[in-house]
Every structure is written in structure tokens, then in C-alpha cells.
Design a protein around this nucleic acid. Structure first.
Lengths: 345, 345
DNA sequence: CTGAAAGCGCTTACAG
DNA sequence: CTGAAAGCGCTTACAG
């Protein structure tokens, strides 16, 4: 591979002149410019991006950290998110580095990515990454709010508590009085927000929401989301009392629906199902169509990229963006008979 | 940001020793190692990936070049492909750089990506990128065969001609004698292969396939795929004679179905529709369910990544992998009446 | 087992 | 308008 030195030598000028001819950061006479480009062309010279990055201490790359799931495939949510990130980054001249290598705690194994900033996913309670990125001085934004709340950093999120409130409201208005909540992992901030939204609306209606009606996903107990939904319904239906189940993702709902089918539970007549996410890859295969929440992952991605680029330009700016999620009514929810006689509000 | 020099100074050793302590490429005594790590931790030192890459002339990054469509969003095919690429790369310790910055011909504007190799999409006839990557000496693989055929490079592809043959066979067996083919852009190799497969089977059955029944996508004439399908059917139905339309993608089929609906053409009774790709995001919204082809984009991505990593290890290996695509029967195809009386083979 | 030094291929003050 | 030189932060022969 030809280097800038080769070009300089062949064109009979200095390295700086070649560099300037390419970057146009200072004026170079026409004849010299031509000589340089002729030599570059003849040698098949292309500037080395890595060397340039080292010199200017910028890569023009945004990093997107996506934890790789056990089955090796990213979800539709993540894929839409990537989509949004790419769109915005490329609009602003940035490339996107996908990193899903395991994030080890051993600093000896940990090498910084060649990126100017990072987008991280799924923040957990007291997420150690936040502190690490902070101390590394690397610009970052989070998709999902940090826990505890921290307005001194940039993040995007859905209005999770509000949407949970809406879902609860929808169920309560339709006469449901007892809901089974298959929440996300307990240490995820989104799990906390959804739970508090749901509890709020029950409190508002004066309907109790017993703790045992909320369970959390756990990698130890369940192989995957579908398994989580399947086993949870299979093992509790008839024992626990509920007329509706609210799930973390549509994969979980998928498992729940399978359990219902096997147990001969009629959906939605005997059991209503609502999912907090709308992973199009699965929902298309569901019959009946799932009532679920559209999180607009691509918008989350776009906004995250915007915030990150803003932050890379000026480390001092911190901004939060909330993307409104919306309930998409499908066919898995039904009016409980008692709602006909029992009108709240 | 702390550098290796800071750590060396604080630990009272040389740079080389710090480097070796981190990379473990040569044995360092326990006490020294500990001193180094203590200093590194205290300083918040992380090795600089860019500097390391420059020194070893490797980045451990695979580049994936995805042309950004006008609407800014990648297709489901591409997203599945990315998925496969990520999966395989991360399995082998590589990261993935998504690059969809416009590829300019001006070498002055063109800077090589910080990647060890490239995966390129949608090769065209005499694709100039192939020559460029070749002369740059950068390992690359193509998703889609090059045109003209070139067994001296690595690529993955579907068995496009065969699938086209199957589709034609399916239509002919069901009594269709006249098919309208909304092919991809004329300069795409996939367009060529599908066309030749389709023509082959018609020749085999002794049924003519007039040239005017094949048109090609063009960015100048159509805003997007859906537009292509919509306008093509609207402007030809009743003039051109056909009982079935075979489209490039399901987006195109989507447009064709809309035109049919507006013109009061009954699908599939009066018009059968088959798409060469199965973009799940759209097909779910189609009613009736589209008869289409599953290309297994994620497998294409996985295999492309495998080939690339192979090639990055040894530039001299060249291998081709064909992923079998399969026809997925939906509800948009029907038996033409004459097939009942007219049995070939 | 450790260190001093050259080198990776660029950019950019500095001096003219 | 152009050049010589230092520097970006690592790795790795080479010498001990």
C-alpha cells in the first residue's frame, strides 16, 4: 500500500503538501495539486484512515454497543434501533461501529473502541458502564434512562411509566381487576418505570395490585422470552387469579399464547394479553394479532445518534429526549363482563 | 486520557513493559505486572485502539458497505444480513463497521475505512468497486455474484436462476402462459440471473416469453419499489397480456397489489403475484399473504462474514457459497382455468 | 526478564 | 505558497 511519503517522493514535494492537497486545509497551487493527484493515482494511494485518526484524535465513528443474545441474533427492536442510528449518523457524516463483543471487567482485556462516542443500551440500576464511560471521558448517550435518574447525562427513552399507566387504564376500563405482569429483569430501569406506572393507575382506581402478581425475567430461570411467557402462564393459571397478562416483550406474549393454547384457555375471552413491545418479526406470526406497544425504536435510534453527535461536539451539553410510545390495539384483549355493570370514573 | 507513557512513568518501568504486561506477549514478572496494573487503574488507562491498530496494521473490524436508500432506512433484507454478519463476526472476535457514506469517485474525498476487509452488496455489471478493492489490496467479499462471473474472488449468493426457474415452473404448471416480470435494475447481476432462469423454464415448456413482458427498475422513472409496482401495473394492465406478475421485491409487489385494488382487479383470480424477496416488514401488512421467496439474508450475512475472515487470514483463498432460496407459497397465486384441461409434462 | 529506539502513516504548528 | 520536524499512542525487533 502506497503511503503519503511515496506520493510526496514521486510528486517531488513534501508530505505536508500532499496532506494539504488532499485535505484542502490550506491553498496549494494548481500545478502542485495536479502533480500530487497524478502521483497518488498512479500509485493507487488512499489516505490511511487509522493514521489520520491517530493524528487528529478523531475517528468520525459512533459506537453502538449491542449485547449479543445467546442465540446470536439481535431482536427486531435492536435492528430498528440500528436503523435509526445509521440513518442519522450517515446524514451527519459519521459511520457506525457495532460492538457486541463481551464487555469484560478486566481492564487488561478491555481496549477502547476506535470511536468518538458511544451509544449504550439497556441501562441497569447503578450501571457500572456509566461510571466507566464517564471516567474515560468518552461521550456517550444511553437508550433508556439511567437509574437513579441523572439529568446530567444525555439519554433517550420512551415514556414507559405513562404507557404502563395507559395499559392499566385500558384494562381497568374494560373490567379487568386482576392482572399478571411478566416484567423485564428487575434491575432494568424500564422494568421499574413500567411497574410504577401500572401500580399508579391501579391505586388511582382503588384496585389492589398484589406483589405476587408481578414477576421478573431472569436468565437463570428462563432460557428466553418465549420460555418465560410459556412457563409463567402454564405454572400459574388457575392458581394465581388474573384475567389479563401484561408482558415485557412480544416474545414473552408469544410464549404466553402458546401456553394458553395448550391449556385450552381462550384468548381473549378467558385471558387478555398485552405486550410492552412490538417486535414485528414475531407479531406477524401471531394469530390473533397481539395488542402491544409501538416503541418506535428507529426514532429512539435517530434521537440517540443526534444527542451523541451533539455531545461529541460539546461535552458539556446534556439533553434528554422522550419518544412517546403508543398502544396498538390488536385482538388479544377483551372486555370483561363486569365492566358492563361496573363503570368507574 | 492517560497514555502508555503515563503508566510507564508511574509504574517506573518502560513503555515496552507496560505494553507486554497488557498483551502478555512475553512474560513479565508478577511484581512488575502488578505495579503496572495498579498504575493503569489509578490513571484510568485504557489502551488506545487506534494507535494499536496503526502499529500492528490491523483493526479487527470488518466493514459492511450498505448503500443508504433515499428514505434513509435500510430494508429488512439488509437488516437480516447485518444480523448474520454481526453474529459471525462477533463469534470470531471482530467488530462490524457499517459504512453507508456515499462512495465518491474522487480519490481526494475517499478515505479508506479503518477495516481489515469489506463486505459489499449488490454488485453490478463490471462493478468498479471490485477493481478498486482489488487494486487497494483490501480483502473483500461480495454478497451477490460478480458479473461477469469471477471464480477468483469470494462471494455468497442465492441460487437466483434456479429459484426463478422454480417460480416459472410453478406458474406454468398452474396454467399461466403470460407473465409480466418487474425485474430489478438492468445492471444488477441478480436481475440477469433471475431473468435467465425464468426464460429457461419458458423455453423448456415451449411457451414464448416476449421481451416487452420484462421491465427493469430505474431510479429515474420510479421513486421507489412500491411506486415501480404500482405504476407498472396501472399503466399496462389490459394493454399488455398477462395473468401473473413476478416482482423484484415485496415492496414492488405491494405497489402492484395496490394498483390491482384500485383497478378492481381481483387477486389472485385475475392476477397472480409472486415476489422474489420476502421482506418481512411489509409482507405482514399484506392481505392476502404474498407468495414470495425466502432468501435467508441472515445466512447470506453469516457466510459472507466467514468468507471474509477466511480471506483476511489468507488473501489467496477464494471460495463461493450458494445459499438456497425457497419459494414460500402464500395466497396471491392461483390456478388458471386452462391448467385444468391442459396438462404439460 | 527489561529498556531504548525505531516505526506505523498521518496532521499541524512553526519557520520561511 | 511550501518544507522540515515534532507528535498522535501504540508495538516490536534489537540489545542486554
Amino acid at each position: 500500500m502506497a503511503t503519503i511519503d511515496d506520493v510526496a517522493r514521486m510528486a517531488g514535494v513534501s508530505k505536508s503538501t500532499v496532506s494539504m492537497a488532499f485535505s484542502k486545509k490550506r491553498p496549494i497551487s494548481r500545478q502542485v495539486t495536479e502533480k500530487v493527484f497524478r502521483a497518488a493515482k498512479e500509485l493507487g494511494y488512499y489516505p490511511n484512515h487509522v493514521a489520520r485518526s491517530l493524528a487528529i484524535r478523531k475517528t468520525m465513528i459512533a459506537g453502538l454497543r449491542i449485547p449479543l443474545p445467546p442465540d446470536g441474533y439481535i431482536t427486531a427492536f435492536e435492528s430498528q434501533l440500528i436503523n435509526g442510528v445509521i440513518k442519522e449518523c450517515s446524514r451527519q457524516g459519521y459511520r457506525v461501529l457495532l460492538d457486541n463483543l463481551p464487555e469484560l471487567d478486566d481492564p487488561a482485556q478491555f481496549s477502547q473502541d476506535p470511536v468518538d462516542g458511544l451509544i449504550m443500551l439497556n441501562p441497569r440500576t447503578n450501571d457500572p458502564r456509566i461510571e466507566r464511560y464517564g471516567q474515560m471521558g468518552i461521550p456517550f448517550v444511553s437508550v433508556g434512562r439511567p437509574d437513579p435518574f441523572d439529568e446530567s447525562m444525555s439519554y433517550v427513552d420512551n415514556n414507559n411509566a405513562e404507557v404502563a399507566y395507559q395499559i392499566g387504564d385500558y384494562l381497568l376500563r374494560n373490567g379487568h381487576r386482576s392482572v399478571f405482569f411478566l416484567n423485564a429483569s428487575a434491575d432494568m430501569t424500564v422494568a421499574h418505570d413500567r411497574q410504577s406506572g401500572l401500580k399508579d393507575v391501579f391505586r388511582r382506581y382503588g384496585v389492589p395490585f398484589p406483589e405476587e402478581n408481578i414477576i421478573h425475567f431472569s436468565h437463570r430461570l428462563f432460557a428466553n422470552g418465549a420460555d418465560y411467557g410459556y412457563l409463567s402462564i402454564r405454572d400459574t393459571f388457575g392458581k394465581l387469579h388474573y384475567s389479563a397478562v401484561v408482558t415485557d416483550t412480544d416474545r414473552v406474549a408469544f410464549g404466553a399464547l402458546r401456553a394458553a393454547r395448550e391449556l385450552g384457555i381462550e384468548v381473549p375471552k378467558e385471558l387478555s394479553v398485552i405486550a410492552f413491545s412490538n417486535d414485528t418479526t414475531l407479531s406477524q406470526d401471531m394469530n390473533p394479532r397481539l395488542t402491544s406497544v409501538e416503541l418506535s425504536a428507529n426514532r429512539l435510534g435517530e434521537e440517540a445518534a443526534k444527542l451523541l453527535i451533539e455531545k461529541m461536539r460539546d461535552m458539556s451539553v446534556n439533553r434528554q429526549v422522550i419518544i412517546p410510545a403508543s398502544l396498538v390495539i390488536g385482538e388479544t384483549c377483551c372486555v370483561q363482563s363486569r365492566s358492563l355493570t361496573n363503570n368507574e370514573e
